[in-house]
Simulated scan of single mutants.
Amino acid sequence: MTNILIVDDDLNILKLIDTFLSEIGYKVYKAQDGLEALRILRHTSCELAVVDVMMPYMDGYNLTKEIRQNYDIPIILLTSKNQIEDKEQGFLSGTDDYLVKPFEPKELLFRIKALLRRYDKQSDSATVTLGRTIINKKSYEVHIGDVTILLPLKEFELLYFFVSNPMQVFSRVQLIEHIWGLDYEGDERTVDVHIKRLRERFSKLTDDFKIKTVRGVGYLLEAKK
């Protein structure tokens, strides 16, 4: 049975999600604040967390950071805020997806299933290797020979995605959906900025791969033969 942690100080939301997910077959653990959520995680193995932003004691952004540092599980932020700055703060905290209240329980279910599929695939191959380059999804580290590199979250996820899918062309829209989530409303140039940073970081460190621009289409990672 899949364990889902729901964290929200609104008892009505907790009850709604608990009832809906339990009827489908998930085991739901409920917490009304971040501190209670962390206590549950210390004693219970959960496969996914749904976290409200506005909570007492510890808000959803800080809880997301704590979960991301200690547990390799997907996180969905729930919030009544719909401003791009709030979404940016959520993704910077390490969330995988973002759902604005009010929402349909079915939409939450779709997102839960999508993230569980994505993490299940990643857990089967938490480490990907390309030449002397080793990318570890569990530790979020990139090793090139004796050099260890710690990347910002989205740069790491973008690189991991490319190396896991070499020689495949992805449009900016596809990359945003995979890395930033369906709700991301920022500029597509965000992809260009992150790829520019990756190129700058690795061009002098390794020739195991190159991220190339496919004019009019998007980007692909070319692996050294």
Results as ranks from 00 to 15, higher is better:
residue 164 S to V: 04
residue 63 L to G: 03
residue 25 G to K: 07
residue 81 K to Q: 11
residue 1 M to C: 00
residue 34 G to K: 05
residue 41 L to S: 08
residue 126 A to I: 08
residue 10 D to K: 05
residue 177 E to L: 11
residue 197 R to E: 04
residue 174 Q to P: 11
residue 184 Y to F: 15
residue 59 D to P: 15
residue 128 V to K: 04
residue 50 V to A: 01
residue 66 E to S: 12
residue 30 K to W: 15
residue 22 S to M: 10
residue 161 F to R: 00
residue 219 Y to V: 00
residue 136 N to K: 07
residue 122 Q to E: 08
residue 94 G to N: 13
residue 95 T to G: 07
residue 120 D to K: 14
residue 177 E to Q: 15
residue 73 I to M: 03
residue 127 T to N: 06
residue 43 H to N: 14
residue 93 S to K: 12
residue 176 I to Y: 02
residue 210 K to E: 00
residue 160 Y to N: 01
residue 216 G to A: 03
residue 153 L to H: 10
residue 79 T to Y: 08
residue 129 T to G: 07
residue 31 A to P: 11
residue 24 I to E: 02
residue 96 D to N: 14
residue 50 V to W: 09
residue 87 K to P: 07
residue 77 L to S: 03
residue 2 T to V: 08
residue 153 L to P: 10
residue 13 I to F: 10
residue 214 V to C: 04
residue 70 N to L: 10
residue 109 L to V: 07
residue 104 E to Y: 14
residue 186 G to H: 07
residue 178 H to I: 08
residue 104 E to V: 11
residue 29 Y to T: 03
residue 84 I to V: 15
residue 79 T to D: 07
residue 138 K to G: 05
residue 42 R to Q: 15
residue 154 K to C: 03
residue 157 E to C: 10
residue 71 Y to S: 01
residue 170 F to N: 01
residue 49 A to I: 08
residue 146 D to Q: 14
residue 63 L to C: 06
residue 168 Q to N: 09
residue 59 D to A: 06
residue 119 Y to V: 02
residue 113 K to F: 00
residue 89 Q to F: 02
residue 114 A to N: 02
residue 188 E to A: 09
residue 50 V to M: 02
residue 38 L to S: 04
residue 152 P to A: 01
residue 167 M to R: 09
residue 173 V to W: 11
residue 5 L to R: 00
residue 76 I to L: 06
residue 40 I to Q: 02
residue 11 L to G: 01
residue 37 A to N: 05
residue 24 I to V: 12
residue 80 S to N: 15
residue 19 T to K: 15
residue 209 F to V: 00
residue 191 V to E: 01
residue 85 E to G: 05
residue 1 M to F: 05
residue 204 K to Q: 09
residue 204 K to G: 03
residue 64 T to N: 04
residue 118 R to F: 14
residue 206 T to G: 04
residue 100 V to P: 06
residue 82 N to V: 04
residue 92 L to V: 10
residue 95 T to M: 13
residue 59 D to K: 11
residue 122 Q to Y: 09
residue 25 G to W: 11
residue 7 V to E: 06
residue 100 V to E: 01
residue 16 L to R: 14
residue 31 A to C: 12
residue 167 M to V: 05
residue 35 L to T: 09
residue 129 T to S: 10
residue 151 L to Y: 04
residue 197 R to W: 08
residue 106 K to Q: 08
residue 214 V to E: 00
residue 2 T to C: 05
residue 153 L to K: 09
residue 121 K to I: 08
residue 47 E to T: 03
residue 184 Y to M: 11
residue 116 L to F: 05
residue 3 N to K: 09
residue 96 D to Y: 13
residue 1 M to Q: 03
residue 33 D to I: 06
residue 183 D to Y: 15
residue 17 I to L: 14
residue 62 N to C: 11
residue 73 I to L: 07
residue 10 D to W: 14
residue 78 L to A: 03
residue 107 E to K: 13
residue 84 I to D: 10
residue 82 N to S: 10
